[in-house]
Amino acid sequence: MSADTIHPEPGETRRDFLYLTAAAMGVVGTGVTLWPFIDSMNPAADTLALSTVEVDLAPVEVGQAITVTWRGKPVFIRHRTAEEIDAADKVEVAALRDPETDAMRVKKAEWLVMIGICTHLGCVPLGQKKGENKGEFGGWFCPCHGSQYDTSGRIRKGPAPKNLEVPKYEFLSDTHIRIG
């Protein structure tokens, strides 16, 4: 290379500009190429398609609870007794870790519908079957790290940060719901 082909320019040169634009394009290109691979790990279309389930509540007596599967997760449905509803209503909401009134968590007071997964680390709490430990608040007790939920599924004690999640659902008739 002869000396006269080199034109050192003061300050920023066109070469700097080319470096930066090439690098920026490289970054964008890498990101665009990577995204399909990362996104392929997200839930697939058939997994998403399994996103609603209908449940007939007619056979569930007062005081009974059933567990149904929705999106591979257990959904707790409890036909609450008057005492349980009363106990849930009486709690002082402001003192709760995740403050929610009972009315915010149900569509019809006697039916409590929640995802049965502890908000701590994803275990399934006990309390659905007769004779299982329901914890000190008469709701649910998680065997993994001892979180306790009340009769509205709200966190009362133990390490879980949030109340049991209420899924999207609607009443199709008085005794029929669709979850999802």
Binding site: M41, N42, P43, A44, T47, G72, K73, L121, G122
Partner: peptide, 30 residues
Amino acid sequence: TVITNLFSAIPLVGNALVSLLWGGFSVDNP
């Protein structure tokens, strides 16, 4: 289940990240 749920503790992106790790809504075939 327990270990992947650790990532749900991360604020804002936690739940999306766990769903990405699972490839679904729970620990399952994917």
